[in-house]
Nucleic acid binder design. Structure first.
Length: 592
RNA sequence: GUCCCCGUAGCUCAGCCGGAUAGAGCAACAGUUUCCUAAACUGUGGGUCGCAGGUUCGAGUCCUGCCGGGGACGCCA
């Protein structure tokens, strides 16, 4: 009875099966569409099912009449099996044909016990059944430190990975290093200048088209320290390769540091260059070619915004249109090297060959136009056996006290991810990243996110956990520590929890397993952040009620048994909050 | 021109494989406030869910068209 909603649904189906075996309802009904969910209006009970409305058509009865038959069948089953404490289930047919289900308080008390028993593993699910999922995220070019936009992708990918793991998937986290394209050559040239600079040469301004970032100054010095002046008067053809290797290694070290600071880790850093060197791209495209999916053709110029230097030219194209894309896509550049797309096809094929049919990529907003072609390519390359879901992360708008923080790489007012983390802390950054859906732009205000007030969701949720811990600390004045452990509190007289606000809070906690499954299926980690805010709000509300009404306080010197029951609830809140924060990757605090 | 995302209260946004009278925070208004942790609390008002059709027992949610905002659109990644 870990997932109450799932459990009740099974019960509803069982009751309908009873009616079928009694001959009241016909055989062969499709029960798949039967849903059980908590109604919006609490007056409609704890849970509601649409069973009667869904079956009405097949049974040729009106939904209300059918509901009138199912309701007693459910209650009869309950009395017979005692699944919900016996007589603990009241089913009421309602207007269009809903069946409103009210569960006895004992059922909810049992839920709270389940929370205490499970600890932060409460909400773990077997939904994924161990299926392998590959989540690729960040994949920032190794040309400099990460910016806040990368940070968003990092958090979304990391939280989604943890969420899927909690839901029972075998998650593999990957970072794709774009270390083979023209960008890393530019990086190498930029480094060469800094290297010369480190050896005392006057390099003047960094030319247009190279990376001007200060972060390369130190890399230049490091290179000078390692190699001395050996590259100084050599032609580019000699130093380009070695400097590129050095630069990539240094940049990746920088990026890994940033990721560590953010608490993000990957299982695999996959190198594009390695795929190129191993011939994986040639092999992959040869395979496509054999199937007639590659041809030489001339593309229409893009409508609306035709580049000035446009000229029709035959290209090596992939028949993406055969797999749902809008146009066929180029695989080779004019200099004969593979496009990024070509390499990416090979990379995704490689993932599939490593045993992943369930692929998720986290991309920045600027890659939105790339989704269809990648999905098309994956269909082609895996024969439709793998599916790719792409989560697009929208931009972050930085503010400070309401004033926009202008960012420009050229003007040097570029804000790196590291600066933000150092300023507000990784936990704040991570939580805020999930306070919007990933495909929605996000405002990030340095002043607001560190504010200690109800308006700040991070603070609000953290404070709920800290407040729970505080209550437990207070309780040590009246109880021995052994009496306050979660195992001890399982045996507290939970039937003393009768206030509607207390029961509402337990119901909220009991939603956690269902929320995990829903969020995991939808690939939407932000739901966790929203849920935690709801839990925190209910908990704070209950705490505040104790200010007006002393009898509702958690700790009552006059009634140790009731106090223990309420402490069990307090612990339940702390456990669920901690369980949710663990998925997001935020440390729950004991005090603030 | 094509494709993708978005359009929900004055503002910022949720809305869980369609479900019953569409929610939260902020702002506004009205009150309360020395209380287990203080960084407030309680309550009230406020929405043709961009527009128009369609699908069905039922649509903010699905389909089509339009309007508006953002983004992408050969040899960048």
């Amino acid at each position: 009875m870990i997932n109450i909603v799932q459990d009740v649904r099974a019960f509803v189906v069982a009751a309908i099966d009873d009616l079928i075996s009694q001959g009241v309802l016909p055989q062969g009904l499709d029960l798949a569409r039967i849903a059980v969910e908590p109604p919006r209006d609490p007056a409609h009970g704890d849970l509601a099912t649409n069973a009667a409305m869904v079956l009405a058509g097949a049974v040729k009865q009106n939904p209300m009449a059918l509901a009138e038959q199912i309701a007693p069948a459910m209650m009869a089953r309950e009395i017979e099996t005692g699944d919900y404490c016996g007589h603990g289930l009241v089913v009421t047919p309602a207007r269009p044909g809903f069946l409103n289900i009210r569960l006895a308080p004992e059922v909810w008390h049992a839920q709270l016990r389940a929370v205490l028993r499970a600890g932060t593993s409460f909400g773990d699910s077997r939904l994924g059944a161990g299926e392998r999922v590959n989540v690729e995220y960040v994949s920032a070019n190794p040309t400099g430190p990460m910016h806040v936009g990368h940070g968003r992708g990092a958090v979304v990918g990391d939280a989604l990975s943890s969420l899927l793991a909690k839901a029972g998937f075998a998650v593999h986290r990957e970072y794709y290093i774009n270390d083979a394209g023209a960008q890393v050559d530019i990086l190498a040239r930029s480094l060469y200048l800094r290297y010369c600079e480190a050896l005392g040469e006057d390099i003047g301004a960094i030319p247009e088209g190279l990376y001007p970032g200060e972060y390369l100054v130190e890399t230049g010095r490091a290179l000078a320290a390692r190699d001395g002046g050996k590259w100084l008067d050599r032609p580019e053809s000699e130093w380009l390769g070695p400097l590129r290797d050095f630069a990539i290694e240094e940049m990746m070290a920088l990026i890994r540091d940033d990721l560590t600071a953010l608490g993000v880790h990957h299982d695999l850093f996959a190198s594009e260059r390695r795929l190129v060197n191993e011939g994986a791209i040639d092999e992959c495209l040869a395979a496509l070619d054999r199937r007639g999916l590659i041809y030489t053709g001339v593309l229409e110029p893009p409508k609306g915004k035709t580049p000035e230097d446009w000229e029709p030219r035959p290209q090596t194209l992939f028949r993406a249109t055969q797999f749902g894309d809008d146009v066929d896509r180029p695989l080779k550049k004019s200099d004969g090297s593979w496009t990024y797309f070509a390499a990416d096809i090979a990379y995704h094929r490689d993932k599939f060959r490593r045993g992943f049919a369930n692929l998720i990529d986290i991309w920045g907003a600027d890659h939105g136009g790339y989704v269809k072609r990648m999905q098309a390519a994956i269909r082609a390359v895996t024969d439709g056996k793998a599916a790719l879901d792409v989560k697009i992360c929208q931009l972050i708008n930085l503010f400070d006290k309401g004033a926009p923080v202008r960012m420009s790489k050229r003007a040097g007012t570029f804000v790196t991810l590291r600066e933000v983390i150092d300023e507000v802390g990784k936990d704040v950054f991570r939580f805020i990243m999930l306070t919007r859906r990933n495909d929605q732009p996000l405002d990030f205000d340095f002043a607001k996110v560190t504010e200690q007030s109800k308006d700040n969701p991070v603070f609000y949720v953290q404070y709920a956990h800290a407040r729970a811990a505080s209550v437990m600390r207070h309780a040590t004045e009246a109880f021995a520590p052994a009496e306050l452990s979660d195992t001890a509190l399982i045996d507290a007289p939970l039937d003393r929890l009768t206030d509607p606000a207390e029961l509402a809070l337990i119901r909220q906690l009991a939603q956690w397993p269902r929320l995990v499954e829903g969020a995991a299926e939808a690939h939407e980690p932000h739901r966790i952040a929203f849920y935690l805010q709801d839990v925190a709000a209910q908990f704070h509300m209950l705490w505040n009620k104790g200010r007006d009404e002393a009898t509702l306080r958690f700790i009552l010197a006059s009634d140790p048994e009731l106090t223990r029951a309420r402490l069990a609830l307090v612990r339940g809140v702390a456990i669920v909050v901690a369980s949710g924060l663990a998925v997001i990757g935020v440390e729950p605090v004991e005090e603030m």
